[in-house]
Design a protein around this nucleic acid. Sequence first.
DNA 1: CGTTTTCGTGAAATCGCTTTCACGAGAAAT
DNA 2: ATTTCTCGTGAAAGCGATTTCACGAAAACG
Lengths: 336, 336
Amino acid sequence: MAAKQKNRVTYAEIAKLSGVSEATVSRVLNGDPKVDADRIAAVTKAVDKLGYKKHRAAAALASGRTGLIAVVIDDDLSVFQDPFWGAITNGISRVLMDNEMQTLLLVAPLDDVDSPVANYLQRGEVDGAIFLQLHKDTLIKRLAKQKLPLVVNGTPHTSNPFAYVDSDNAGGAYAAVRHLVDTGRTNIACITGDLTNTAAEQRLDGFNAACKELGLPITKAHVAEGDWSREAGFNHATKLMKKHENLQAIFCSNDVMALGAITAIQEAGKSVPGDIAVIGFDDSYLAQNSHPGLTSVRQDIAGLGMEAAKMILASLRGEEVHSEILPCELVIRETA
Amino acid sequence: MAAKQKNRVTYAEIAKLSGVSEATVSRVLNGDPKVDADRIAAVTKAVDKLGYKKHRAAAALASGRTGLIAVVIDDDLSVFQDPFWGAITNGISRVLMDNEMQTLLLVAPLDDVDSPVANYLQRGEVDGAIFLQLHKDTLIKRLAKQKLPLVVNGTPHTSNPFAYVDSDNAGGAYAAVRHLVDTGRTNIACITGDLTNTAAEQRLDGFNAACKELGLPITKAHVAEGDWSREAGFNHATKLMKKHENLQAIFCSNDVMALGAITAIQEAGKSVPGDIAVIGFDDSYLAQNSHPGLTSVRQDIAGLGMEAAKMILASLRGEEVHSEILPCELVIRETA
DNA sequence: CGTTTTCGTGAAATCGCTTTCACGAGAAAT
DNA sequence: ATTTCTCGTGAAAGCGATTTCACGAAAACG
């Protein structure tokens, strides 16, 4: 038998106080439209008076809906240090709470389709799931087949019909290049992230599109594939400067590489932004606290989270959901 | 009636297959010690064979235990950008999952004792709670009174009997000073964080203790109270350099201020660490990616999370829990 | 004005697990 | 040998919601 909670208010009391049946109490509390207005009022009043709060476990057992949305983080690597996921989870949590739903955090390696997390998700212990940092599509394909509402953060590799949220990476890169051109530089290089990553790819696409559209004489020799690391930024910047005598700017796919590039430029005896301008991506802590202040493309990370949560909620309501692309904003500081 | 999950395995099936009662199945699955070994074996076998997984909502309803631990983040400020809480939550989640518990994330302003979060916690929807970034003790006092197992991250202001986890802030500061002395500097200044914060206070305590113990001629004029910001680091460093002609080092209570201080030093025409050494605290992304690389005191953030989770679990088992202080480690890079 | 629908409502049956309680068998005590 | 304790076990009563189902009244129909 249950460990009795100290005098918990139940439907029984509400029903008695408001003179209706428990069934009707349930209907009112779940917003069933076809209940007499008087009764709704009576129940609502009783609920207020008694300070009733629904017992989620009981509701979950009876209805099969847990009121929980899983936020799944594939913890195979850098999760520990990246402020990104904190911000996005925050956004998610906020929206869910406003809708009486809770955020269940699942941090674990997702490689195994039979991992505890995978099992958990498949067992209906949550009403939906939001995936951050997805590396493989296998698991979510399976979950989608089981009709678990899903939203993925970041553009998936495959063109599967997963709903996803993402920043307008291409647009952000475009804006960066446009700003460089606006401020008079035309000889611009690009250090990309790991190109197996869709975000890196999109940022490069944006860079290329801008170059083409703005008529810049940019060749493949202006693009170097990095791996998001400071060292990659440093090394590629060094090479690029050698390759292109009058290089005027470098657009980097993240802030860390941008800082590496800046160091390289300075060590080569040139100035930033005087000789070579640098723009990063993410507008991270790093960009905000570097010296000189790093011009960077900001993503609305919390916004991504909020959007993802809204999509899950819509999906729960049975609505068709569409992927969302959120705009990026160029934050101009000192390096460009 | 419940929305029937597709053929969910229940106790009834296990009981039938293993030839015992449902009550015994429950006992076995909950580790009741006084069940006959043969029966345990039979049940275990049946569970494996059927691939049974416990329905948490049902268990929660019957037992009053939800299997959920809340991680409460007082979201009144910088949570969005701080990588700290991601790391700590990660550590928590990891330990909880290993113990069949789940992490429920609650992000909301905690000022109001009647906020949704507060209500939620008081209603027994979770088995325990871990508080990150606590600003006021009011709420947790109340929760503690209700016997909700609690762990707080960071040393509480009041000397209330809350179990908490924290880094050895004083020890970290001490190690920083010791390193400075070991490398020949004796004229050392300190830029603290906001001193209403216990971590800032402890770091200052460590600094003072080290100075005293190592016999340094440090006065109050060597200490400046900052507010964790880059600007504070910059401004205080500037003033400190003016005040102390042959200042040899500055210990800052976080990395951001350290970076500000470095900028100030360089702009004053001095070199780091040649003229003045700088040490930060946190060993954040910033420290790792700055140029020159920032020497900083590292906290074991994930460790704090794991420790907090273990404490909650112990508390759930009815054990007496003791606060934990985790050691810090000085990470030596280029600035000191 | 009789008949068929529609519609709101309450009684009652779950949802799947936990826990109390009583019972019988063997151990221990007398 | 009889009585008292232990101890493991199963039957059954919940935990607190949701939802089906049937029923009576009102609305719509012919």
